[in-house]
């Protein structure tokens, strides 16, 4: 074999190998190209799986809330929270403003501490010996005659019973306990009991609402809803728990 032929043979082999490598690279690049792969599908599959689980969790959470026995010392709990609010111990984690807004206005719903507390004081039967579902059912009569008072009582009781420590944020200088109370809405009528639809969180007359400490546009965007029915004297009432993905909480300085 002459020298030229040997060189040609060598070049052909090198080119063939390079061609294979190049082809493999093209294949790999194609596989990584967005739209050509199922990465998104796989992510979606995993995400929707966890969404379903989260949905179940919210539904189970609502049932647990509704089965919770109402404490006999509800008024004392409310009083404790009022005192802490007055002392400025509750703070919004984002704005730094007072967070519970007992006497303030959240959207168009007016929560009046005095009215709500008075109703609870004068009607111990609405909470003593009742579960949270029983409390909601017992409030119906008062809701029909004094909706604002009933709303205030519902909000106070919901916060006092379910506000709980969510996490503890410790920095080098401070330690903050983060509390949250849930967003629960009750609709006594005006819905189809066969397929109750989730209702919007925006303030609307005709419902009982406790919008908790996590009511903002961001958290509403990623909201999970759980809806269930509870019996009342006349018709079933719809109870909805809204679970925001992002919780904006209140904090308590460590005592």
């Amino acid at each position: 074999m002459n020298k030229k032929a040997l060189l040609g043979d060598f070049v052909l082999k090198v080119f063939t190998i390079l061609f294979y490598i190049m082809f493999l690279m093209i294949v790999l690049i194609i596989l990584k190209l967005p739209g050509c792969t199922n990465d998104k599908d796989v992510t979606d599959i995993i995400r929707s799986g966890s969404d379903e689980t989260l949905q179940l969790k919210v539904e189970q959470q609502l049932i647990t809330y509704l089965r919770t026995p109402m404490p006999d010392d509800l008024l004392e709990r409310i009083e404790r929270m009022r005192q802490m609010d007055e002392d400025g111990e509750f703070t919004d984690m984002q704005s730094g403003e007072p967070a519970l807004k007992w006497n303030g206005i959240v959207d168009t719903i007016v929560f009046r501490l005095k009215d709500g507390k008075k109703l609870i004081e004068q009607h111990p039967e609405i909470y003593k010996g009742q579960t949270y579902a029983g409390f909601i059912a017992a409030l119906e009569r008062h809701f029909r005659s004094e909706p604002e008072k009933a709303n205030a009582a519902f909000d106070l009781a919901t916060r006092a019973v379910f506000a709980q420590k969510y996490e503890e944020r410790i920095t080098r200088k401070t330690s903050k306990e983060v509390y949250a109370s849930p967003i629960i809405i009750v609709k006594y009528d005006g819905f189809n009991p066969e397929s109750p639809e989730p209702i919007k969180t925006e303030a609307k007359p005709g419902d009982l609402r406790s919008i908790g400490d996590s009511y903002d546009a961001v958290s509403l965007a990623a909201m999970k809803y759980a809806v269930t029915l509870i019996p009342t004297e006349d018709n079933p009432a719809m109870v909805q728990l809204n679970a925001p993905a992002l919780i904006q909480n209140v904090r308590l300085p460590r005592a």
Binding site: G49, E52, Q60, I63, L66, A133, A137, T228, P231, P236
Partner: peptide
Amino acid sequence: VEILSTYEEADESLLYLDASTRQ
């Protein structure tokens, strides 16, 4: 999840039943 959701659906009915009985 589907199996759990059947339990959850049953639990919802049982909650309604329990609350009804209590009342």
